[in-house]
Nucleic acid binder design. Sequence first.
DNA 1: CACACTTCCTTCCTACGGCGAACGAATTAA
DNA 2: TTAATTCGTTCGCCGTAGGAAGGAAGTGTG
Lengths: 387, 387
Amino acid sequence: MTDVVTPPTSPVSRERSKEIKRLSVISTARQVRVLSRAELTELTGLSPATLTPLVRDLIAEGYLIERGPGTSRAGRPRAMLEFNPRAELVAAVSLEPSRISCEIADSDGAVVAHRTVRLTGDIVDTICRSVPELAGDGLPALRGVAIAAPGVISGGAVRLAPSVGQIEGRPIGESVQRTLGVPVVVDNDVNLMAAGEHAAGAGTDVADLLLLHVADGIGAGLVLDGQVRRGARGAAGEVGFLPLDPADRGHDGIGPFEARWSENAIAERVVALAPGRRPDSPVRALVELAADDPRAAGYLDELLHAWSRLIVSCVCVIDPGRVLLSGAAAELDDAAVGRLQDLVTAAAPSTTEVRRAVLGDRAVLHGAVSYALSAAAAGMPTLLPAP
Amino acid sequence: MTDVVTPPTSPVSRERSKEIKRLSVISTARQVRVLSRAELTELTGLSPATLTPLVRDLIAEGYLIERGPGTSRAGRPRAMLEFNPRAELVAAVSLEPSRISCEIADSDGAVVAHRTVRLTGDIVDTICRSVPELAGDGLPALRGVAIAAPGVISGGAVRLAPSVGQIEGRPIGESVQRTLGVPVVVDNDVNLMAAGEHAAGAGTDVADLLLLHVADGIGAGLVLDGQVRRGARGAAGEVGFLPLDPADRGHDGIGPFEARWSENAIAERVVALAPGRRPDSPVRALVELAADDPRAAGYLDELLHAWSRLIVSCVCVIDPGRVLLSGAAAELDDAAVGRLQDLVTAAAPSTTEVRRAVLGDRAVLHGAVSYALSAAAAGMPTLLPAP
DNA sequence: CACACTTCCTTCCTACGGCGAACGAATTAA
DNA sequence: TTAATTCGTTCGCCGTAGGAAGGAAGTGTG
């Protein structure tokens, strides 16, 4: 069948369209989880005759697992196929100040293996060693690597400095990609969270959303038309720099808004209101204080006003339709979220839902899974009719 | 074209991939204008054998015109093909308060025919009658219709009222589409301008840009990753609502920012500075005044500060990389634009170019052309290797 | 001027993949 | 047991893409 040195025959569409069909079946199966060939026929629009050999291949490759016959009223029962999430593994790497956390997850976002290593030596080397070790015998199923780089949210001088460019730009991603031989995506953590909430969290039902992450800094991740948008220089979502109050001043890498309304700033005020140990969750602490202490309630209201103006600003520019509160902002209780919603509704030019993000720490992981899987399907559009 | 009940043989990819190749050739030719088959081979990745019959068809259909042999160093000279812009016509319809202007343009944006009619009777009827009349015997070449609806920029109570929904939503677009049988896109004029500048103006070299249009109101059109983005409810770019100054108040459909810094508001101040007739171009008048009058210079500086904060806000949210000044904002002279650029650079978290839009009145038309042509190619992604 | 040489375009032909149709399989209803 | 029904598979036709080869139309060189 395969001669030696098969001359690369066709540049484009024959193999390509075959692969498109493959991916179409895979992604359908990934969504539906358990289905029969007959359902695949309906959902993908492919003819049964086309599906038979295709499904055979997918079973052989482990993507699909044959289950027993399903139920049906009459006629031959459907032979059910189950999607095997383990057939596609993804590595999510988080770069933190002095260490690297690395997780292997299946396409459900279930963590198969994880490890945290101190960062000694070269980042690229460390990643390229850790990932295969962790993946173990699942390595052939590795479909992609997503690397979450800090620096946009976490503030500090690194944020917009050239060093970030080195991390976000080619070097790391391309090096790892060359070594491991799978698609690699590098992005900042907030963008990944937004992708995660879109893929598996509080934004699965919409095509546009904005995730507002409040931590040491304030940043936003933006999903428009189903895709994370990074802007021309990757600085989209730098909402901590919004000039909402002429009195606020930023300094070296800290934007004016986040200088006053980030988790850090809130923590200081909370300490002033309730002297004692600096709380781990200042916003939660503030919400609790506000129940009894009028001064705290007043400050909370100030805070909500500030955040609402931030959200309204984003709505005016890109109209996300839904805003997800993440990080410290997710610690607001229902009443505070409701208040925020009201403030936004009053000032925004377009209906906008405000709610908490739901994935918490797992958002980055789910985002990484989503990135890596869609990187595998990159450029594979819908040649097929919509389901 | 339409047989009686043609039994649909294959649902999907066969015809589709053929059409993709067609469009790939057409769009390549549209860009390059004059080329040979050999160049098409390089640019599209299609094999010469595939191109021969395809090009033959395109010549027969008028898309391509055979020109004489081109020059070459050695070997058989290339038979040059010229793209015929007249092979694709587009209708651009502008809805204005009490009239409709309608233009037929070729794919270069050259106007073939135009007409303005008073709006009497039904909008849809008027459009469906005017377009074929204007197109005349070019009607078969009509590839799409783009309808520019006002209401986002022009302020007034209509802006976000339900009636806009009726214009922007299904009714008009779908009705016209059904009657004329070509793709119809409805959008607001600022979005079309942004698309126009991106396709044929000051943004052809970038994938992201923001067009800031100052008129009676202030609105922005947003191009991200090469596409106009409208947000979840089509309200992206409503930057007149930005809450940049707590003191500013909007009222019924007018945002707080534009209430103070739109062309209208500027005109009032200019009249106060230089009593007399209200100028047609208040910004230009202001710039001229500022040369001599310190008070005018002071106000101009205020204005530039305000606009710069507006621009910076947009940059913080979506990082467009380039901002185009349109409408009244395009009347600034070089010095003022430079000043604006400096102010933006000082406060923005990401490098951002500020420059004037270049298409002026023709921007909407070019945007309409771009919309209509890409609507024809909708869902036709790059199956082919990048040029 | 003849001859190679180069490059472009076309025609021929083959291999391949999609899918229509027919068929076998596995169950329920009668 | 038979009919009816639905599922899945095999067969084979057909359309198409593209490799290979060959004509076409020039430029250089002896």
